[in-house]
Simulated scan of single mutants.
Amino acid sequence: MGSDSDLNIMQAAAEMLQHFNIPFELTVVSAHRTPLRMVDYATGARARGLQVIIAGAGGAAHLPGMVAAITSLPVIGVPIKSSNSIDGWDSVLSILQMPNGVPVATVALNAAKNAGILAAQIIGSTDQTVAAAMDAYKAQLNNEVNEKVNRLKQDWNNGFDQ
């Protein structure tokens, strides 16, 4: 993440990675304040065993794109609505509008949970244990919705206005 103030958002990605038993690093790397640290972090990521990088940033939000420019690992960008943001659009567009050749998978504003899930799906494409956990997670989502459908049917049949 670009700043420790992003932790309250980025924590959701960490929680999803923990849910899928995927080891991860959680740190602050600023594209603007610590550019050399960013270069070292991104260029050494594969050697440290990382398979995907999730980069969250607000405002100008250059971190995901700059990291994607210097690593061949997939990068998932999480635009964060910061205190100096223009309703988060500055962050979204900074991450989304990357030039051809430097893709960044971009999730919705503040959607670090989805970034964690997407990272797990990417890793699960070659790791059967993670794939099985992802299948179970998707089945759980399906079951939760079906339970809500059944509750709604039951409530409707019993009459809402009783």
Rank of each mutant, 00 (worst) to 15 (best):
A115P: 03
I53G: 10
A133P: 01
W89S: 04
Q128K: 14
N100S: 15
G124L: 08
I76M: 09
H62G: 14
L73Y: 08
T71Y: 04
N84H: 13
L93G: 00
A108N: 14
L63Y: 10
L109P: 04
A60R: 06
V75L: 07
S94G: 15
V107K: 01
V104N: 11
T129R: 03
N110C: 05
P99I: 14
P99L: 14
H62Q: 15
T126S: 13
G88M: 08
S72F: 01
I70D: 00
L118F: 10
L93C: 00
G77R: 13
I86V: 14
V107G: 07
A115W: 00
A111S: 15
G59W: 12
S125K: 11
Q97N: 15
V130E: 03
I117E: 14
G124S: 04
T126E: 13
L109W: 13
S83M: 04
G101S: 02
A108H: 04
A105H: 02
I86S: 02
G88P: 07
A61D: 08
I54K: 05
A57V: 09
N84L: 13
G65S: 02
V75Q: 00
I76P: 02
S82Q: 10
A131M: 02
I76T: 08
G56M: 05
V104M: 05
I80G: 10
G59L: 11
S125W: 07
A119L: 01
W89R: 13
Q121W: 07
G116I: 12
G116V: 08
A57K: 08
S125P: 01
L118G: 11
P74M: 13
S72V: 11
D127C: 01
L63M: 11
L93K: 04
T129I: 04
K113T: 00
D127G: 03
A119D: 06
G65M: 09
V78P: 03
A55E: 03
G88W: 08
A132R: 13
S91W: 14
P79C: 05
S82C: 09
V102N: 07
A120H: 01
P79N: 09
